[in-house]
Design a protein around this nucleic acid. Sequence first.
DNA 1: CGCTTTCCGAGACTGGAGTTTCGGAACTAC
DNA 2: GTAGTTCCGAAACTCCAGTCTCGGAAAGCG
Lengths: 202, 202
Amino acid sequence: MPDSGQQLGRPRDSHIDHAVLAAARGLLAEVGYSRVTMDATAARAGVGKAAIYRRFGSKAELLFAASVHDMSIEPPPDTGSLRGDLHALARLIHERLGNPLARQVTPALMAEMVRSPELAARLQQTFVAQQRADFAALLERAERRGELPRPLDPALAHLLLSGPVFMALFAFQDPVDDTVLGEIASVIAAGLVARSAGPAPG
Amino acid sequence: MPDSGQQLGRPRDSHIDHAVLAAARGLLAEVGYSRVTMDATAARAGVGKAAIYRRFGSKAELLFAASVHDMSIEPPPDTGSLRGDLHALARLIHERLGNPLARQVTPALMAEMVRSPELAARLQQTFVAQQRADFAALLERAERRGELPRPLDPALAHLLLSGPVFMALFAFQDPVDDTVLGEIASVIAAGLVARSAGPAPG
DNA sequence: CGCTTTCCGAGACTGGAGTTTCGGAACTAC
DNA sequence: GTAGTTCCGAAACTCCAGTCTCGGAAAGCG
């Protein structure tokens, strides 16, 4: 088996990546998701369509990359309480996914994941794993404060907090104001504390 | 202004509705969402394409109607406790949306809602409003049992329970087993009880 | 009866996503 | 140098969702 990491032939021109993303970002802001065409994007970037498809598997992937720069929720801020940390995290998730561009693009990406298991796996390994790790740090902090007597599954906590935000944005298309985010954080924080103090699962 | 509900000319043939839905259901099960074509569906149903588009606004709407027969969560079962009721409801939501057909179709429908505010409004008025009403009945029952000292917003509770199920199915594409549904129900039930007993929101 | 309206199947048509093909250029290995 | 590979822009191409047009049939109204 040859070294599959070997670079042969002409190297990929990295200027094209930026030109394509900038063109896509501009068109998306100007005309909206459904009226962005790959031909127009290629033309504005001064690039062939094949160069785009060599980098991005589909229109949905390209426009997601163009509109959502970074899906990690960073070092989760320490607000001093589990409830406050969850509220801050809900705000971050809402900022990432609730802006006008991401609201158009994210549902298309989810539909694309059905067609492409490779895409689903890639997103799983990047943004889901990253957010889950951030969540584990947050729960560990709550344990050290004494808010959580027993450790909890970070994946479950992640699901419980981000699910409602996600559902409101994309299934209900309800506006989500900060009061609602606070309510969600309050209920989840109280529920996690009670669950951690209560009987073991299973 | 004339009576806009007036029926003039030939009435719509209701046999066609069933033929189209049956053809769509069959093709969906056989070849999967992305390989179902409107031409093939029309041909199998023995029908013109225009007859399909007179009934369903898009491929996503047709296949959603063909795979998700009924989105109400019925008379929510009374299991004797808030936690049990929430677990049962989580199971129902999971059954509706977690079967192989609905898992392919629902994300496409969400992407379609971005393009079509009319579709979004229609779904909002049917399945969201219906589930929210079912949720209100469930919360009222918990109040009468004495589990909830103070009434809670049914929309918030709906979001908190269905959001995690939805997120696991469509964003994470994680398998959701009954243990996870039970965990979700436990945390939400504990959180709602604590929230209802605690300080008023705002 | 005619007149109008809406339905129907069939199929042509448009527009855009995604693929492929072409000639050419850039890089590596020999 | 030469060969082999991968890149590039351009553009032709395939496929399919969604629209439109046709001739005809079925209904209500006069």
